[in-house]
């Protein structure tokens, strides 16, 4: 399997002097295409920061991040925006969607940025809505959808741009366990059927149960990189 993510001696610090926090320290990690990986650890362990560094949302103080062979540190501004748009799908903890746009328009948003033709956009929106089990609800705005449905729209949006990898930062944090499990099943299904690479930042046991690889973080460093033979279904 080709490597999608390569980080080399990655470090990110916040504050200085007495308030210095080493959020990520000397992290080297590779993730292959098609993996379903979870970055896990207690609060403040550096999961979200590492995910942001991988996704080009933050700049490391030291080290490098290569995503699909491209050194993210070498690009900036509009080029970095374009890179994220074309190669990475994001799912965040909450308020993922633009509240004034309908579910369809939210899914269509990134494709509009990519200048995908109108017909193609319409087809992909329908496919994505069906894939996440929201057919018929595309005209609803986020406030008219449940938390789980909103996260599914976020998954559909992340998928619609056909990225190399989807980074999900605590995607189930604001969902009840049943809704969270359903959402994870959707993502797992996409991973298995379409080979989409997922990387989670989480401390949700349900995600840990389903992930094939668990990267344990503590105080910004990798404590344990665990590849599991069997996972919950």
């Amino acid at each position: 399997m080709p490597q999608v993510i390569q980080t080399q001696n990655l470090s990110r610090r916040f504050g200085e002097g007495d308030t210095l926090v080493r959020a990520v320290e000397n992290v080297s990690l590779t993730i292959d295409s098609g993996e379903f990986t979870a970055l896990i650890g207690p609060s403040g362990s550096g999961k979200s920061t590492l995910l942001h560094l991988i996704g080009g949302l933050d700049i490391p103080h030291e080290g490098s991040v290569k995503l699909s062979g491209v050194d993210i540190a070498s690009i900036s501004g509009a080029a970095l925006s374009d890179f994220r748009r074309d190669h990475i799908g994001f799912i965040f903890q909450s308020y993922n969607l633009i509240p004034v746009l309908t579910a369809e328009e939210n899914i269509e948003y990134v494709m509009l940025l990519q200048n995908v033709a109108a017909g193609e956009r319409k087809t992909r929106v329908s496919e994505m809505l069906e894939l996440v089990g929201l057919s018929g609800l595309g005209h609803r705005r986020p406030p008219e959808l449940s938390g789980g449905q909103q996260q599914r729209v976020a998954v559909a949006r992340a998928m619609a741009s056909q990225p190399d990898i989807i980074l999900a930062d605590e995607p189930t944090a604001n969902l009840d366990s049943k809704t969270g499990a359903t959402l994870l099943d959707v993502m797992r299904e996409l991973n298995q059927s379409l080979g989409v690479t997922f990387v989670f930042s989480t401390h949700d046991q349900m995600i840990m149960d389903r992930a094939k690889r668990l990267v344990h973080l503590r105080d910004g460093e990798i404590e344990l990189d665990e590849l599991r033979e069997s996972v919950a279904t």
């Binding site: 074309d86 965040f92 949006r157 741009s161």
Partner: peptide
């Protein structure tokens, strides 16, 4: 601000 962060994350250019 959070929403702007999200739309920037998904690839919206500064100019946009």
């Amino acid at each position: 601000i959070y929403e702007i962060g999200v739309i920037k994350a998904v690839g919206t250019r500064p100019f946009e």
